[in-house]
Computed example of a mutant assay.
Amino acid sequence: MEPIAHSPSKARLSERESIDCELMLLLEQRPDLSQRELSRRLGISLGRVNYCLQALAQKGWVKLENFRQSPHKQRYVYALTPDGIARKSAMTARFLKRKLAEFERLKAQIALLEREQGKQDEGAQ
């Protein structure tokens, strides 16, 4: 069985796009989450969350606003812009397509390994 070759730059792009997609999904559901909570939920560093949020804001996909009802005036609400909502939808569709293709490859690999294991088990008897 030959390993599937992946381009390192494509893998990085996929990881970054995956994080952006997950981040925007979380923000759409809970725009009031702190960066620390986003970091915890995404399993990435606080610095990386900050970097991603700033990048999304610079692209015009996320808007940072002060959370006026908060007693801590440093709290922000991260609102998806209309362009951000459109991008999130497109990213979600690509992410889903990529994950489904990955799932199909894994199913094929599992089936092959099961067949190989069955042959080895028959030969051992």
Rank of each mutant, 00 (worst) to 15 (best):
C21S: 11
R40T: 14
E116A: 13
L46N: 04
D83F: 10
D20G: 06
A55Q: 15
G84E: 00
L106V: 00
E17F: 07
L100D: 11
S45D: 08
R36G: 12
R115L: 08
S34N: 02
F95Q: 13
I110V: 12
R87G: 01
S14E: 12
S45R: 08
Q117P: 03
R12I: 11
V77Q: 09
Q69Y: 03
C52R: 15
E102G: 12
R75M: 14
R30G: 00
T81P: 05
G60T: 02
E122D: 15
D121H: 04
G123H: 10
K59E: 13
L113W: 05
Q58H: 14
S70V: 05
A86Y: 12
R94Y: 08
A101S: 07
R30L: 00
A86W: 03
P71R: 13
R115K: 13
Q74W: 10
K99V: 08
V49K: 06
F103P: 00
L64R: 15
P8S: 02
R12V: 01
P71M: 06
E116L: 13
E15A: 12
S89G: 15
Q29T: 11
K119G: 02
V49W: 09
A93T: 06
Q117A: 14
S14R: 15
H72L: 14
Q120H: 11
L25D: 08
S14I: 08
K119V: 09
A108K: 01
E65N: 03
E102A: 13
W61F: 14
L80D: 01
S45W: 02
L100Q: 13
L27T: 07
R94D: 06
N50P: 00
A93R: 11
Q109Y: 02
P82A: 05
V49P: 00
G43N: 02
S34I: 02
R41F: 06
K97N: 03
N66H: 08
D83G: 10
R40Q: 15
S18I: 00
I85L: 15
K97Y: 00
P8K: 07
E104K: 08
Q109A: 13
P8A: 04
